[in-house]
Amino acid sequence: MTDGRVTRGRRTREAIVEATIALLREDGAAAVTHRAVAARAGTSLAATTYHFATLDDLLVVAFELLTDRMVEEVERLAELVLSGRMDLVEAAITFVEEVDADEDFVADGMIELAYGAIRNERLRKPTQRLVDHMGEPFAELIGGESARVLIRALNGMLLHHRAAGPDASTGELRSDVAVLFEHFGLTTAVRHRLEEES
């Protein structure tokens, strides 16, 4: 009996976190309330507040899960780039465009996390963790600090692209990303890596 209760509790908690991510994706952090999350998760308000007493608790867990997903996606794309199966700029554009996929919440997730961290000190640690981990695949190519600065610059670029609205030119973003990667020496470093391995 206890195992069943634990399993149900875990499922409810997971549903609450996924509902929070869905609300973040659709309407941003301002849309996340206990009541809205409970309605979206199909659970009671009491269950939502039982699992997450404060919205801060809920946002931290949701953003930590988002961070894990974004890092996994960066690692997947970096592996494709470093094995020569995908162009570096194309990988970055793929990462950005996945924000519109049904279940993914990539570029906008970074933006929401960064905005949240401005006002919420508890979100600063997941924000820094995201930047650090997203830069890791490229740290050995251009150095750890350069990789982190590159990721911060890319995040700013994505923010401006998303702020331009749904009609924003992917061609302009592609051009900007190419210049950014070239400026940081990442394009050359990837090319040298591929030449060494061939």
Rank of each mutant, 00 (worst) to 15 (best):
L141E: 08
E64D: 14
T49H: 13
G109S: 12
V149D: 05
L66N: 11
G84T: 08
A147R: 05
L45C: 04
G143H: 02
K125E: 15
A41I: 04
I118T: 13
V37Y: 06
D108P: 03
I111P: 02
T67P: 00
A62G: 08
L59A: 14
L150H: 03
H133F: 12
N120C: 05
A107R: 00
P137M: 10
L150Y: 02
S44G: 12
S146F: 05
H51P: 04
F95N: 04
L141D: 11
F63N: 10
P126N: 06
S83M: 02
L82I: 01
L55R: 15
A41S: 09
G84V: 05
E97W: 00
A53G: 06
V60C: 03
L150I: 01
R122P: 09
L55T: 09
V37F: 01
A46R: 11
Q128F: 11
V60L: 12
V71D: 09
G144Y: 13
E97P: 01
A78E: 07
D100Y: 15
V81G: 02
A117S: 15
I93Q: 07
T94L: 13
L45E: 12
I142R: 02
L45Q: 11
I111F: 11
G116N: 07
V131G: 04
L58M: 13
A92W: 07
N120I: 07
A39L: 09
H51M: 09
T127V: 02
F63D: 02
M110K: 11
R122D: 13
I142L: 02
T48R: 07
I118G: 09
I151G: 04
L55Y: 00
V74R: 15
L113F: 12
E64C: 07
E75W: 10
D108L: 15
L59V: 09
G144P: 05
L113C: 13
E103C: 01
A91C: 10
